[in-house]
């Protein structure tokens, strides 16, 4: 991969309360942009106090609709995350993999991602 960057979730959201899908989308957009450039991402959850599945689905879960599991495993890592939050993230990731096994959803996600990058 071509180098690495650190994304501070607190800085992106502007708060330690990371609960909304819209805020998760902001984190996602940075991760996805870096992955497209083959840059490794370290996501830091330092100072994050509250997390929801809605936030993590938008931030990380939807990556599985755009990128392969192999690329995500090689290119994304998380640090400074509490054990309970890691457990939540693991469930979000498992649900996301399951979700995108539905070919109709996968195709829709790919089409949407393509449209978004065309618009950029």
């Amino acid at each position: 991969m071509n180098g690495q960057i650190v994304i501070m979730v607190f800085e992106v959201v502007g708060s330690g309360i990371c609960v909304s899908s819209d805020d998760g989308q902001k984190v996602h957009d940075r991760i996805a942009a870096a992955l497209r450039e083959n840059i490794r991402i370290i996501i830091s959850f330092q100072n994050v106090e509250s997390l929801t599945s809605a936030f993590l689905n938008a931030a990380i879960g939807q990556l599985y609709g755009e990128f392969s599991e192999v690329l995500i495993r090689a290119g994304v890592s998380v640090v400074e995350m509490e054990q309970e939050d890691l457990a939540l993230l693991k469930r979000v990731v498992e649900m996301a993999k399951e979700y995108f096994r539905d070919p109709e959803r996968f195709k829709k996600a790919c089409d949407d991602a393509l449209e978004a990058s065309d618009a950029d």
Binding site: Q25, N57, L88, M95, A96, Y99, D112
Partner: peptide, 18 residues
């Protein structure tokens, strides 16, 4: 289980189960 009515690029379905 893993039931969800979500469609589109963002997965879902965990909130009520949690």
């Amino acid at each position: 289980g893993k039931n969800t009515t979500k469609l589109g690029p963002i997965p879902g379905g965990l909130g009520l189960k949690l």
